[in-house]
Computed example of a mutant assay.
Amino acid sequence: MDMCLVSDQEERIPLHLAAMRGHVEVIKELLIAHPGSISRVNLYGDNVLHLCVRYNCLDALKLLVESVNDKDFVNSKDNDGNSILHLAVMLGQTKTIKYLLSIPELKRKANAKNRIGNMTALDVSETCHRDFKCIQIQDIPKAAGVRRSKDLNSPLLPALNDEEAQSARPIIEEQPADLSRFRKWWRYFYLCRWVKHLQSQSNWIDETRGTLMLVATVIATMTFQSGINPPGGVWQQD
């Protein structure tokens, strides 16, 4: 059906929009009507898998991965060279990362580098702020064998014993310009998400303040009325 390939100003087709909203049943019908639409990309090089990750629609992602005949499709990249694993790590989607690394075809190429700093998914995970969730996200690709880009051409090193670990000194390396730009981009992205969170918190505080003021006004009014006209009236002396 030609209608399945009609695109908007960002070159998104109906399958893209259904994936962005996680409409699994709609995705099934669109794939039946036009199976080839799964390979179409939008203006930014995102295919339907990228959009599932960007909008955190894991069920839709699983359906599409199971439906595609080209097993290497899960390793496709956007215009910045990011795979869906790169995006899942950037967005901190723990469940999605675990699922993606369970796919044999993707796990075999989990060390693929993007075009922004030539970074692997593990490199990307190390650009976030050092909080508990960030450390948890780093542990997942490490456990799956994902490596840093600088370590790809070197053999795996044996684990150090306690004496070697104490005597080892950290080596400070200059970061390439692309990596520096990526870190700035990532911090800007994280800052935007944090500002949005603070704005939502601010709206919640304003609504709560208004509710408390209303309750306080009602209580004060009831107390004032009870003082003027107490139940049973005012006792009068003879």
Rank of each mutant, 00 (worst) to 15 (best):
D70A: 04
V195M: 06
H129T: 15
G81E: 03
L85F: 05
Q199S: 09
K184Y: 10
F73P: 00
F189D: 08
D59E: 15
H86G: 03
N229P: 05
K109T: 13
S149E: 02
Y190A: 14
K98E: 15
V24Y: 02
E105Q: 04
A159E: 12
L17N: 03
H50Y: 05
I38V: 09
T208E: 12
L106M: 11
R54I: 15
E126C: 15
P155A: 07
Y188G: 07
W185S: 09
L15R: 09
D162K: 09
G22H: 05
Q237N: 10
L61V: 00
G92W: 04
Q9T: 12
E174I: 06
H129G: 08
R115L: 15
V41N: 07
V218F: 07
N56K: 04
N118L: 10
G45R: 00
C52Y: 00
Q136N: 11
Q166A: 15
Q237D: 13
V234H: 07
D206K: 13
V124W: 03
D162N: 07
S226I: 07
P230C: 03
R147I: 06
S67T: 10
Q199D: 13
L157D: 09
V195L: 12
V89G: 01
D139P: 00
K95S: 12
P170M: 08
S39C: 08
I13C: 02
S167Y: 05
N229W: 15
H16L: 12
K62C: 01
G233H: 05
S202D: 10
T94V: 14
V53P: 06
M222S: 10
F189T: 04
S154E: 15
L87C: 08
I116C: 11
N111Y: 05
A33M: 13
N56H: 10
D72V: 01
L49I: 13
Y190P: 01
K71G: 00
T96E: 02
